[in-house]
Each structure stands twice: as C-alpha cells, then as structure tokens.
Design a protein around this nucleic acid. Structure first.
Lengths: 192, 192
DNA sequence: ACCTGAACACCGTTCAAGT
DNA sequence: ACCTGAACACCGTTCAAGT
C-alpha cells in the first residue's frame, strides 16, 4: 500500500517465508500477499521465480566467510574442514536450505561462491587447477547431498511420517565430520 | 478402455514419459491419459505421487548389478570404481534420472540398493560398518550430485538457455573418473 | 475391487490496461 | 517506471458415487 516495492524487499520476504515454512511456503502469491501487492508485480522485478530463488540462495551462503589467504593461514586441510563445516551450518540455518542451494548450483544460478572459495584454497595449496576443481566438486556435492538428506529426513520426522530419532540426529554431526575427513584424505593423495 | 490397470502398467507408462520428457512430463494427469483412465484411478494403486516416483526410481537403478562377492572378485577399489561408474550410467539413461533418485533417496523411498551394495563391498574389504557407511555416503552423494549437475546443465543447453559446450561434455566423463579416484584414495586411508 | 466424475485448493506466468 | 486485474494453463489430492 504505502511505498513502492524493491528487489531487496522481495528477497527479504522470501527469506523469511523460507525460514518459516520451507520451500513449500515460497510461492509467488504468498510473497506478493506479504508485500500487499499483486503477484504479477513481482515479475517486473524478477524475470521469473528461479531468479528470485537464486537471490535467496545467495543470501543463504553469504555468511560462509572466506578463509585467510594471507601470511598466517592455517594448513590447507584445516581450511577445507572449516569451509565444509561452515557451509553445512549455513545450509542448516534455513529449512530446505541445502536443497535450494543445490538446485541453484546445478543451474549455475548464484551460490557459486563457496565452490570458488574451496577451489581457491586448494590452488593456493599447490593443486593443479583442474585437480582443485574436481576436489572441490567432490566436497561440495558431499556437503549439499548429505545436508539435503539430513534436512529432508528431519522434516519427515517433524510431519510424523517417521519417528524422531535423537540418537541418529546426535551422530549426524560426527558422520558428517568423518565424511569430510575421508575427502580431505583423498585430496592429500591427489596433490601432485 | 479394454482391461484393468495394474501397478506395473502405471510404472511402465511413467518410465516412458520420463524417458520422453523428463520429470516435467511425469504428471498424474498425463499418466492417466496415456492409460485411458481418470487421474483419480491412479490413487487406488498408489497412495500418492511420491510412492509412484519411488517405484520409478527403483526401475532406474535396477540395472546396477551387484559385484561378485565370491572367490574370484576384483580388488575392492576396483569394485567401487565399477559400481560408481555403473550407477552414473544408470542415472544418465533417463533425463532427470539423477535428481529423481536423489530425492527418493533423501526420503528413504526405495533406490537404496546401490548404497547397500557399496557398503557391502567396503565391509567385505575389512572396513568397520560405520566407516563403510560414511564412505558409501560420500561416494553416493558425489555420483548423484555430479550427475544431477550434468543432466541439468545438459537440459539447459538443450532449451538454449546456455550454449552447448562439446568440450565440457567430453571432459565430463574424465572429471567424474577423477572424482571417483579421489574418493577411493580417501577410502584407502580410512581403512583401519 | 476398481474406476468415474467432479470438485477443491492450489501453482507459475502473461499481458493489456491503468497511473 | 511500476503496478493492477484478470485470465491462461496447468498442478496433486479427495471423495461420493457407480459397477
């Protein structure tokens, strides 16, 4: 009613809807409703829903800080573990966060920064560019896939389709950490 | 018109629709139409669409043969490489095959056989059960994630949203193989 | 047991028209 | 430049009723 709508407003509402109800709640009609505007109004600011989702995905992975590339940096293996852990934490901050980012990444729509950061760390550690890209994709696919699984399972438990298993949830962190370790070990022997 | 509809008929039509038009073409209305039946008729045979998709996913991964667990088996690392390559080939056989199987796996709806096969190979090679599960999940998430990326990118190129890059497509196989190698190397150092 | 017919409650996207 | 109003072309699911 009051003012005009901006791209940032739309993304902000979209993020809050995602936080509240997951990907299911992220409908153009609902976003428009929340902004007090017609659904067609959104299409002046975004070409389509995918572009909007790309912006949301970007926001999700934004808090993943780049590691120090300066003098006093941790060993590369430690940097990789940190990046992987931070990425997972960022994805877990929103329901369906992992699925959303994975989809956007497959379409090459934003959210590419974490992949680039990981690749940079590896190149900086002496990996050949192609080898660094391959290693980064192994890591990213594991983080996204594992976290998607985790969130989807958690959601199914919340609906009551599955009994909530505290034991399994507790060990999710450790299984993830072990997966990361395996990949870092693989990277170590891949370095020329 | 002629005969009654069976679960197998529905799955068969669904698979052929997937082959022809990808996940987008897999609509209850279209399946029903192809069978000459009302859409509501499908709900007598399947509880919902997800259960139907689970059956389709099962069909997609069915051609992934279990490796020999007998006497004259190849070294475990070779068996892992073979299983990973076969899984990817099975997923590539249908458009959106990887995405479909990944979703069903996240919901613990069928298509779990490949994961079990990989775990079995590792346990058989002397891995501790938990370590085998972690290693299998790393491998499976890479195969599914990488192949989903590949198929989605290919589809975007087909629509014309992206230029078709023969060079990139050519090296997709090699990048995948290198990723597999990295993971197998990681598994090797994870074995107690 | 198996299916029809019809409705319910949704979707994303387009486009002329208004201001 | 920015938004409304209304339509188009779809979805999955339910359920009384038929046979």
């Amino acid at each position: 009613m009051a003012d005009r709508i901006t791209r940032a407003d739309i993304v902000e509402v979209a993020v809050s809807l995602l936080a509240a109800g997951g990907l299911h709640a992220l409908a153009m009609r609902r976003i428009a409703g929340e902004l007090g505007v017609q659904q067609s109004a959104l299409y002046w600011h975004f070409e389509n829903k995918q572009q909007l989702l790309a912006a949301v995905a970007e926001r999700i992975v934004a808090p993943v800080d780049p590691p120090d590339l300066g003098a006093d940096q941790a060993p590369w293996s430690q940097q990789i573990l940190t990046l992987g852990t931070r990425l997972r934490a960022a994805l877990l901050a929103y329901p369906d966060g992992a699925e959303l980012v994975a989809t956007m990444l497959a379409f090459r729509l934003g959210a590419q920064r974490p992949v680039q950061q990981i690749t940079d760390v590896l190149v900086n550690a002496g990996f050949a560019p192609t080898e660094a890209e391959v290693a980064a994709s192994v890591l990213v696919h594991f983080v996204l896939g594992y976290t998607t699984d985790e969130q989807q399972h958690r959601q199914a438990a919340a609906i009551g389709a599955i009994e909530h298993d505290d034991h399994a949830t507790a060990s999710a962190d450790e299984r993830f950490a072990r997966g990361l370790d395996l990949i870092v070990a693989g990277m170590t022997s891949a370095r020329s």
